[in-house]
Design a protein around this nucleic acid. Sequence first.
DNA 1: ATGCCGTGGAAACCACGA
Length: 257
Amino acid sequence: MKIATYNVNGVNGHLPVLLRWLEETKPDIACLQELKAPQEKFPEQALLDAGYKALWHGQKSWNGVAILSRHDQPVEIRRVLPGDPEDSHSRYIEASVGGIIVGCLYLPNGNPAPGPKFDYKLSWFNRLTAHAADLLASKQPVVLTGDFNVMPTELDVYKPESWTEDALFRPETRQAFATLMAQGWTDAIRKLYPEEKIYTFWDYFRNAFGRNAGLRIDHFLLSPPVSHRLTAAGVDRQVRSWEKTSDHAPVWIELSV
DNA sequence: ATGCCGTGGAAACCACGA
C-alpha cells in the first residue's frame, strides 16, 4: 500500500499537475495540504473521475487539507486539532482509511519569528504533540503526515547557517519536533535514508530547484504498528520540474499488507 | 541579505507563503 503527501499550493490552480501525478504514481491514499479553496470549491468531481474519493476541510484563500483514497471512502475521525476552540485555520484532518488512522496536517509556517505567528506555530505544535500522544496510546496503526514546516536537522537544509533564525529551523522549532519524535514515532525517510540529503520543497525563485537549494519539511511519522511494515519511501522530485507546479514535491511511503 | 515567484481574493493591490 502506497501513501503519499503533497502540499499542492492551490488545489484548483495546480489541479492539472495534481491529476497527472495521481495518474502516473497511483497512491492508494494521498494527503493534500494548502488547498487554498473554500469547502464548496474543492474539485471533488475531477478527483472522483480520476478514481479518488475525498474527505476535505477547505478554507477561503489559505490553508485547507484533504485525504484521498483510491479504495474505500475515508471515514472522518476529526477535522480540527483538539485544544483550541478559537483556532479557525483548516490545518488538520484525520480519517480511518485502509485500516490505518491517517492524520493529515499543515503546521503553521511561523514567520516572522519571534512574533505572534511564531507563537501560534509553537502552540499549534504543542497541541499536535498532545494529540499525537493520545494516538500512540491507542496502539492503533497511525500515520501522521503532511507539511510540518520544520527542517528537523542540518541534513535537511541546503544551507543550514542561513536558516538559523527562520521559524522553520529555529532551536525552539527543532526542539518541538524532537519532543514529538521522542514519543516513539518513526521518520520514514530517515529510517530508510539516514545520511542522504533529501528535500521536499524548493523556492520558486533564484532557480532554487535547478540549484537543488531545497528543504525537507514534508514528513511521514509512523506509529510502531506501522513502522515495522515500512518497505520503501521517497520523493517524487520530477513533479517539481513540471510546468505550473507546486513549490513542494510529493513524498510517499510503501507499506507491506 | 533579499518574497527575486506564485496563488487567491479583492480590486487593478494586498496577504501570505518558507
